[in-house]
Design a binder for these strands. Structure first.
Lengths: 207, 207
DNA sequence: ACATCAATGTTGGCAGTGTATACATAGATG
DNA sequence: CATCTATGTATACACTGCCAACATTGATGT
């Protein structure tokens, strides 16, 4: 008998509920101050119920980071799609999307890249399969840009890595609070992202 | 009278001892698994002794991050000094030093930039005074490079931010394990740093 | 020289944490 | 309808950060 959800012994879909509630908690209090017991209370279950769905706290955090990588892939892909056929603009918009996502979700971004999650050795397996997806989109974009003669004929992986480093660095500086006063508001961030990436395109050397 | 350090009731210089021991612990187990009580045991004092020297755990972490920023400033400045009069090389070596420091101290780097420390709002005060120092060195370097006609005549802060983002992003990707297999060994890292920064110099657009 | 004090260290305790173990419930399956 | 398995609960333990009360000591002033 299912009177109202929450009154039954079995929750129904604790798994997704936990992830959603955890994201909320992390948004509020940061990835550090996040506790499984508080999460369980928020979800209305006993404090050991989450262990039926996640091996341990780390696994839950990894699942959340995974969703973060998914939306990162989505958003950057969408941004690129809107300027199909214009690789330069695509690259810029991809970067802007990357940085803007970080600005929108600073705590989740820290969770994704801040070393909160123990990924044994090199995270080539589960978690970073998604991170690789985002990177792969960048690689494809650059490859096609090279073939249409927009980008230099350097190793594609290198060009992609440079671009990734640039936007990732900007994103992490912002979420880490290092750019307070310079990049607080969304329009500041977009403006900065565009300028910085233009520099990467044009180079900073005088010619 | 100081028979041997450790046998006296008063430790003598717990402050520095704690910081040093804490750095060791963090290196071993990461900034997340670091506990004050274990630190106290390692230092040979009771589990509340650290509170005589640091307001709370966060303050201790902040102090450690501070030392990290100090060595970052030192190392990058040294790297730049070795190529005085050659702004382009200076910029490259500064970046390499930045990334290499992160590779040498991944856990401390995560502590510095990974959002482990609660810095109230914008960390303009204590902690980031040092971070600003490192950035200021970069600004000076670029300013002089502009005046000697090596760098483009763009806003100095923007050029500096672009450079910083680039190396910071590369550093964080490495410490975050995102570049496993690509940048594990020191020589790989140096090589990658140089190439990536060269790209920033020359630009990635075909011309 | 001695009393006083502030700095530094210790003991004990509390609430909160992650997680292991044993038990309870209920939806699915034969 | 019996049984199995997935899911949730209760209890317990070691550990954590931190607070309050107390102990020790080197420095200070008279």
């Amino acid at each position: 008998m299912g009177k109202r959800s929450g009154e039954t012994y079995h929750h129904g879909n604790l798994h997704e509920t936990l992830i959603a509630a955890a994201i909320e908690l992390i948004r509020d209090k940061g990835p550090n101050a996040f506790s499984l017991r508080e999460l369980a209370k928020k979800a209305g279950v006993s404090h050991t119920a989450p262990y039926r769905h996640f091996k341990d706290k780390n696994a839950l955090l990894a699942a959340i980071a995974e969703t973060g990588f998914k939306t990162l892939t989505e958003r950057t892909r969408n941004a690129a799609m809107q300027f199909d056929g214009n690789p330069k603009q695509q690259l810029i918009e991809t970067g802007v999307a990357y940085v803007e996502l970080a600005l929108d979700n600073p705590e989740i971004t820290l969770l994704m890249f801040g070393g909160f999650i123990d990924t044994e050795k090199c995270p080539k397996e589960n978690l970073d399969s998604e991170a690789d997806n985002a990177f792969q989109g960048l690689v494809n974009l650059i490859e096609s840009g090279k073939q249409s003669g927009v980008f230099r004929n350097e190793e594609t992986e290198l060009l992609a890595l440079a671009t990734w480093s640039m936007v990732h660095g900007l994103a992490m500086l912002i979420t880490g609070g290092q750019l307070c006063g310079i990049a607080d508001e969304p329009d500041q961030v977009r403006n900065l992202s565009e300028k910085v990436e233009s520099l990467l395109m044009e180079g900073i050397l005088l010619r």
